[in-house]
Computed example of a mutant assay.
Amino acid sequence: MAINLTKGQKVDLTKTNPGLSKITVGLGWDTNKYDGGKDFDLDVSLFLTNAAGKVETERNFIFFNNRQNENGSVVHTGDNRTGEGEGDDEQINIDLANVPANVEKIAFTITIYEANERNQNFGQVSRAYVRIMNEGSNAELIRFDLGEDFSVETGVVVGELYRHSGEWKFSAIGSGYKDGLAGLTRDYGVQ
């Protein structure tokens, strides 16, 4: 049975699931009725950071044009440009046991592609969520529904996987960015 998190809540992932190594992280969303004439294209990006919260190498910034980190332990399965249909819109496969030791945190973000040019923001997005599944059994372990707390934001830090005393934990963040991907890359130290 999945644990449903609220904003700010933290939960053990590997300690409560002994032997868990391979997970799938699914992110999904819907868009509200929108008559701006442009398609909505939301993108998942990941920032694999050191203890200081900074990305050390560009290979540790995962997005639709760089779909895996340097050793292949974190793999983005592909860009969904429409968000159509049920279920996850984008997924990431992570082999927790092989994530490089210098990576202390994996931040999951969603941004709106060309948000300013298309006059789009997260006030027009609904039912956004992140969930973590056991890759082997496909059992949902953790779920965080973002709610409708956003209006003018064009990017959101959904949550973070992080190391703590040799175990992996998940933190439900739900923090919005008004300057989208540019603000996220700046704050995570990507050039």
Rank of each mutant, 00 (worst) to 15 (best):
K10Q: 15
L27H: 02
A52W: 00
G28Y: 01
A52V: 00
T24D: 10
G72Q: 04
Y34I: 02
G78Y: 08
I112H: 02
N65S: 13
D79N: 11
E58L: 15
E86M: 04
T49C: 11
E58I: 14
I110W: 00
I110H: 00
A52N: 13
I106K: 01
V44E: 07
N98A: 14
K22Y: 03
V103C: 05
N80C: 12
D95Y: 06
I106E: 06
Q68L: 12
Q91I: 11
L20D: 01
L46T: 06
R59L: 13
G78S: 09
R67I: 14
L13H: 08
N98H: 11
E104W: 05
T109S: 13
A51E: 13
D41M: 05
F40C: 05
L20Q: 07
D41Q: 07
D89M: 05
D95G: 06
V11N: 05
V44Q: 08
D12L: 06
T82M: 10
T16G: 04
G37Y: 09
D39K: 12
L20C: 11
G28W: 02
A101H: 10
Q9V: 11
T82S: 15
G53A: 02
A107R: 04
I94N: 01
E90R: 05
I23E: 00
K15E: 15
E86Y: 09
N69E: 13
S73A: 15
D43S: 11
I106Q: 03
E86G: 09
T57K: 15
L96D: 08
L20I: 10
V25A: 10
N66Q: 15
E86A: 15
D88I: 06
K105H: 11
G37D: 12
R81S: 11
V103P: 03
L27G: 11
T111R: 03
G53M: 00
D12N: 12
V55A: 02
F40D: 00
V75N: 10
E70D: 14
N65A: 12
D35Q: 12
N80H: 10
